[in-house]
Every structure is written in structure tokens, then in C-alpha cells.
Nucleic acid binder design. Sequence first.
DNA 1: CTCAATACTTACCAAAAGGTAACTACTTGC
DNA 2: GCAAGTAGTTACCTTTTGGTAAGTATTGAG
Lengths: 123, 123
Amino acid sequence: MAPTHNPNQCPMESILGQIMGPWTPYILWLLSNEESLRFGQLSALIPDISAKVLTDRLRKLEASGLVHRDYQPTVPPTVYYSLTERGAELHDVLQGLNKVALRWDAEDREKQGKSDSEVIAAE
Amino acid sequence: MAPTHNPNQCPMESILGQIMGPWTPYILWLLSNEESLRFGQLSALIPDISAKVLTDRLRKLEASGLVHRDYQPTVPPTVYYSLTERGAELHDVLQGLNKVALRWDAEDREKQGKSDSEVIAAE
DNA sequence: CTCAATACTTACCAAAAGGTAACTACTTGC
DNA sequence: GCAAGTAGTTACCTTTTGGTAAGTATTGAG
């Protein structure tokens, strides 16, 4: 009892705890660009994530009230994931981050000079 | 050789790899609100982080070119951390995220009703 | 009677991350 | 010559996380 400081002191820490971590913001960003995505579609869009981890991230986002899970008991079953109203409030932040990402990416390619032709040649 | 797909396909993944992870965005946000912060100040602002992890995060941010490390060989030595120009480009995104965090925090407190008085009483 | 398809869950093991305590450097003050 | 103070580093150990493979449910197709 009587902790030395209030853990909820800072709302920033709280929101970061909900959306940070490997893959989580990337999942939110993918969902913010589509009406909804099925589990298999998300899995295909993020080739390096395993089903176990993807499930875990989605469950946590669901528990935070940022993602909605729509289970359709068809055969075989299909599950649609989409952002809740609250989750959609992250759209602008994620778009802003993507803009910065695109800018940095362009700057880095320019400075290195190479990349484009080499990458295509390697395929 | 010849991987099936280019890992740098998506700039979003790249930026997330640089700024995501436990404490990292929080450190950036703290630095974006001050000219600079010393190691000990950061440590005090984030009570639950250990020196080892804080050092690790700062070194990685430095390697990414987002944070500048200014070592002053005084006795005892002092080290000032600040955002680089590139790091400062995250300011708007972080402020946007903080706005959302504050809004959610206010909404959650309202719905729960309690919190404020109880929290203060517990101190 | 078995396979395929979707969206998982579970068990088990390996790898990564993090905590803690001790140690470093250097000079001033006692 | 010992402690204090800043900003670490290092070694060691524990905890957490993640990968992989197998199993679950249901039903239509072959």
C-alpha cells in the first residue's frame, strides 16, 4: 500500500503501454488504412510475424479497446479485425509518423546514392 | 542470397524499428520538451528504468542519429542528451500522441468516476 | 474416409531482454 | 587515504518473449 508515486501520473506512459511494442503500431497502421482485415490478410501483410504473436497483439489491442474483433461462424470461420472509434483516433498520429518515415527514407536513399538499382538487381 | 522480398520495402517498419520499444518513445518525448537533459535527470524522470536499459536506449537512439550526446569531462563528468535535428522532427507526432493520451485519460477518469480523490488519499 | 481451409491454442524449447550488484574513472573535501 | 558524486560498464542470473510443431473445430469436396 501507499506506493511512493502514482503509476498513472503520466497519460503518455499509459498510451505507450497500450500501443508500443514489436509489431503493434504497425498492425494499427495497417488497420487504419483499411475498413477491416482478416487474420490471414494481416498475417500476409506482415510476413515475419508468427500466428502466436499476431494473435497475442490483437488480443491485447482488443482488451485495450482499440481493435474490434468480428468473428463470423462460417465454415471455415472468418474473423475480421478493424479499429474501434478510439483506435481510429490514432489515424492522424500514424499518418504523421508515416510522413516522417517517408521523408527520412528518401533522404537516406539520396545520401547513399545506390540502393534502388542494386535492390532491384538482387531480386 | 536473393531473399524473397526486400526488408526495406516499407519505411514505416524502418522508423518503428528505430523508435519503438520499451521506454524509447517516452525518452524522445521527454527530450522533445527540453533543450537537453542529463543522464541523471532522465533517470529521475523515469523511475522504473535501470541504468543499463537507459544507457542502451540512448546508445541506440544516438546510433540512429536521433539523439545527440554531449560529454563534458568535468569532475565528476556530466553528459547532456538532446534531440538532433532529425529527432526534433518527431516533435509534432509525439505532441499529437500526447494529446490523444490526455483525452483518453480524461475520458477514462470520467467513466470511472473515482480515481482523483482516492489516488490523492492514498499518497 | 480423408483432405482442405481458417483461425486459432497449446506445449515445449531457445533466444533475447532485463535486474542487480560490483567495479571504473577522476578530483574535491574531510 | 577514504567517501562522495556522475555516468557509466561488466558479469551473472532470472524473467520474458518468441519460434515451431502439433492439435482443435467444422463441413463441403473428392
